[in-house]
């Protein structure tokens, strides 16, 4: 029986038969359906994914006409991370002119709102100069990163120390206080950047510290929207599932803990987000087929529920992409094509 080259979620190479791929596709999709209470993929979609995985070509792509636009998170950071010594304006020009980016994002090296607060006066002129020397829409982005608000980095008692002691109320109170400060910081920076001419604000990796992190992002988006009715706000998630670190927080009457992408997007819409970036995490010990079918199941349900553009996260370790710093083009191109064609995405 002929076999096909594929990979596990950690990027390691495997040889699999068509039957094994098909079995993994069904199992992956059903896992998502079960967890999210959403429909699994259809027979036609399984067949489409099977066709993609059994293509012998190393690199696959969407059919002409099905292309989508790309937004980025931590765009300027990635050039720095690989040790290319380009100033951020230059980094944006590299993305725009050399990589064909549809949009770009200016960001601070720590990629969190709190550390930007102290240096926002340095960030604004950079954004203003970048806007004068580029063409594509330019976002300013960072993570809410609620963890920075607890001790020893921030002002409030550390819930990760309180919870094991059984001090549930103390931990919840700390999360609630952190949310207030975080919202202030996000809104302050977003205002500065919008006033400097940013085309959009990206709240990225929201929910990384659980439901309080997600709640802060929604509240901040709501305040930014109220002040700037025309501003573009992109809200990108940290994980597929909102962790209930506080567990009782709500937004507009909905409990946040436990929400999957198709419900998260409704919260983002209610808060006034313009673009939503859902996430499905990659399981390193399952095959790429299993991960991609699972991801596509979550994302399809999210896109169907959405009335705003959806740009799923497809970076390292999410969206069916393998968990390693340099994801291989075979799997990335397959994930990219499959997600775009099956989920009817608006962007990536």
């Amino acid at each position: 029986m002929s076999t096909y080259f594929s990979r596990m979620g950690d990027g390691s190479a495997i040889e699999v038969t068509a039957e094994e791929i098909k079995a993994d596709l069904i199992e992956g999709s059903e896992d998502a359906a079960d967890r999210g209470n959403i429909p699994p993929l259809s027979k036609e979609e399984y067949q489409h994914l099977l066709d993609i995985f059994t293509t012998r070509a190393k690199f696959v792509s969407v059919e002409p006409g099905n292309e989508v636009i790309l937004t980025y998170d931590a765009g300027t950071l990635k050039i720095r991370r690989v040790g290319v010594n380009a100033d951020r304006t230059l980094a944006l020009q590299i993305y725009e002119k050399l990589l064909g980016a549809d949009t770009m994002e200016l960001s601070h090296v720590d990629y969190s709102y709190k550390p930007v607060k102290a240096i926002v006066g340095f960030e604004q002129p950079v954004l203003e100069q970048a806007l004068l020397s580029t063409h594509v829409p330019l976002f300013y982005g960072a993570q809410p990163n609620l963890g920075l608000y607890s001790q020893p980095d921030g002002p409030f008692p550390n819930p990760a120390e309180l919870l094991p002691k059984g001090d549930i109320k103390g931990a919840q109170a700390s999360y609630e206080a952190s949310v207030e400060d975080l919202v202030q910081d996000i809104v302050y920076i977003a205002e500065c950047m919008i006033e400097s001419g940013a085309d959009g604000i990206n709240l990225d990796t929201t929910g990384a510290a659980g439901d309080a992190d997600f709640q802060a992002s929604l509240l901040a988006a709501e305040q930014i929207r109220a002040k700037y009715p025309e501003a573009c706000i992109e809200l990108g998630m940290a994980g597929e599932f909102v962790l209930g670190m506080h567990s009782e927080l709500t937004y507009q009457g909905e409990r946040l803990a436990g929400m999957y992408p198709h419900r998260q997007v409704k919260m983002a819409e209610a808060a006034g987000a313009s673009i939503f970036g859902p996430v499905a995490n990659t399981n390193t010990s399952r095959s790429a087929a299993w991960n991609l079918a699972r991801t596509a199941t979550f994302m399809k349900a999210c896109c169907e529920a959405a009335s705003i553009p959806v740009h799923p996260n497809m970076g390292m370790g999410v969206g069916g992409v393998t968990v390693n710093d340099h994801p291989p083009v075979d799997i990335v191109s397959r994930s990219s094509k499959a997600m775009t064609e099956i989920c009817r995405l608006d962007g990536l």
């Binding site: 790309l70 990635k78 050039i79 002119k97 064909g100 549809d102 594509v136 990335v332």
Partner: peptide, 25 residues
Amino acid sequence: MGMAITHAIASGMGGMRAAGDLVAR
């Protein structure tokens, strides 16, 4: 970086090489 390039080629609109930035707007 390689991943961004892969996505751009696999399913991206090409930015200002074509009209991706305009659709994004």
